Amino acid sequence: MNKKKHYDLPIIIKNDFLLYGKIHLILLFAIILSANSIVIVVYKTRMLIAEQEQLRIEQKKKNDEWRNLIIEKNTLSPPLIN
């Protein structure tokens, strides 16, 4: 009779990774970690740029309002007579 050997493939793959693929797993983990870091930094940068733009718009509105108040004050103040 011919007996066929049965191999447990998932265990063989796991053992190969642990024995020979540690460097590959470490590099894969480093790549995933750096990719996630890039995504987070880009997101935070975009949020800061949007906030900066909102602050610039608000500053422009405040400056316009201040100029209008100065003009209104000069218009409503009585003229100086010497």
Rank of each mutant, 00 (worst) to 15 (best):
M1S: 03
M1A: 02
M1T: 04
M1N: 03
K3I: 13
K3E: 10
K4D: 10
H6W: 02
H6P: 00
D8E: 11
L9H: 12
P10Q: 01
I11V: 06
I11R: 10
I11D: 07
I13K: 12
I13A: 13
K14N: 06
D16H: 13
F17G: 11
F17L: 14
L18C: 01
L19T: 05
L19N: 10
G21N: 14
G21T: 07
L25I: 04
I26K: 15
L27M: 09
L27H: 09
L28M: 11
L28A: 09
F29Q: 05
F29W: 11
F29K: 09
A30M: 06
A30W: 10
A30G: 05
A30N: 13
I32A: 05
I32C: 10
S34A: 09
S34W: 10
S34I: 10
A35L: 10
N36C: 04
S37M: 07
S37Q: 02
I38L: 06
I38E: 04
V39K: 14
I40M: 13
I40F: 15
V42D: 14
K44E: 11
M47K: 03
I49R: 08
E51G: 04
E51M: 10
Q52K: 14
Q52W: 01
E53T: 04
E53R: 11
Q54V: 08
R56E: 15
I57R: 12
E58K: 14
E58S: 13
Q59I: 02
K60T: 00
K61C: 09
K62A: 10
N63R: 02
N63G: 00
D64F: 01
E65I: 13
E65W: 05
L69R: 12
I71E: 14
I71D: 15
K73A: 05
K73F: 08
K73G: 01
P78S: 07
P78W: 06
P79R: 15
P79L: 15
L80T: 13
L80H: 14
I81L: 09
I81H: 06
I81G: 00
